[in-house]
């Protein structure tokens, strides 16, 4: 008789077992998710792409400004803002969209939820795990870029790089949250990822063009235009990163001027609130839907 069989032979404890508390389960699931993400192809691919494009952007921006090659940290940061606007939302949206829907499709979710864990713990654990993976991806991508520049003797503003990583991470949390909402709603992983890509296109391109067209066609008032712009987390990221770089939003035209005139230094709190809302609200809606939907 094996040790296991011997242990089952003794009287079983039928008192209610106390499962781990929520923080412990969230941490366990988050670490599992982080390990899985770091091992996955998307993580490697996005990190490499982010670093390679970052180097390319800084090189091209330096050539454009008459420099001979790689630019310094400050200008690279400015160049990276546009790269972040394109790559980070795509990365976070697709990572979030794939998480729940893919596990549901493969039967992994049902098996996990048959364990002594709550649905909220699973959702939160997955969110934190993927957020950790995104942060690692950003740090590695921007860090590689910074390292190359530093080795070239071009290091001037590393703090700007760190700030950019922080802002990009804030943006990625909102996009991850939205991606997870899509993942909870979708029945199939392919539908979830497809929807995430559609949302990415809408946020990156359509909202910009839509705002321009709307401003012209409907002669939108400047405050309406600014309110509509700040509803898009990508615009908030752009406002905030440029505000941090120049301490003025004049470069963003009338909307930027309106923001500075109306909110002054408090504009930072507005940006913080918008990004925080994007990180929290879709996730909260996802949690409510997830608690009601069958995982199979």
């Amino acid at each position: 008789m094996t040790a296991h069989a011997a242990s089952t032979a003794r009287a079983l404890d039928t008192r209610p077992a106390r499962p781990p508390a929520m923080p412990a389960n969230v941490l366990t699931i988050a670490l599992r998710e982080l390990r899985d993400a770091v091992r996955s192809r998307w993580f490697l691919l996005y990190t490499l792409a982010f670093a390679a494009l970052g180097l390319g952007v800084s090189y091209v921006s330096a050539l454009g400004s008459g420099g001979a090659g790689l630019s310094g940290f400050g200008r690279t940061t400015a160049g990276l803002v546009n790269l972040v606007l394109l790559v980070v939302p795509l990365m976070a949206l697709t990572a979030g969209a794939g998480s729940i829907a893919s596990d549901r499709e493969r039967g992994i979710l049902a098996y996990l939820l048959a364990q002594p864990v709550s649905r909220f713990e699973v959702l939160l654990g997955k969110y934190f795990g993927l957020a950790g993976a995104l942060l690692a991806c950003l740090c590695l991508g921007v860090g590689a870029c910074a390292l190359v520049l530093a080795l070239k003797g071009e290091a001037t503003r590393p703090a700007a790089m760190l700030w950019l990583v922080g802002l990009a991470f804030g943006l990625s949390l909102g996009m991850l949250s939205l991606g997870m909402l899509v993942s909870v709603l979708a029945r199939r992983a392919s539908v979830a990822v497809g929807t995430a890509i559609f949302l990415w296109l809408a946020l990156v391109f359509v909202s910009d063009l839509g705002l321009m067209a709307g401003a012209l066609a409907f002669r939108l008032r400047i405050e309406t235009l600014f309110a509509l712009a700040t509803a898009n987390p990508l615009q908030v990221f752009k406002f905030w990163s440029l505000h941090s770089a120049d301490a003025t939003l004049d470069v963003l035209g009338p909307a930027g001027l309106y923001a500075v005139d109306t909110f002054g230094d408090h504009v930072v709190w507005l940006f913080t609130s918008v990004l925080a809302a994007w990180a929290v609200v879709p996730l909260a809606i996802a949690a409510v839907i997830f608690s009601r939907r069958a995982p199979v």
Binding site: T14, P16, A17, R18, P19, D36, R39, D103, R106, G107, I108, L109, A110, Y111, L112, A114, Q115, P116, V117, S118
Partner: peptide, 22 residues
């Protein structure tokens, strides 16, 4: 109190749903 109830249960499904790389 699903979490408490499931703490008392060992479950074997028809097919194991695991991440293949685990």
């Amino acid at each position: 109190r699903g979490k408490r109830a499931r703490a008392l249960i060992g479950y074997v499904p028809q097919e194991l749903g695991f991440h293949d790389e685990l």
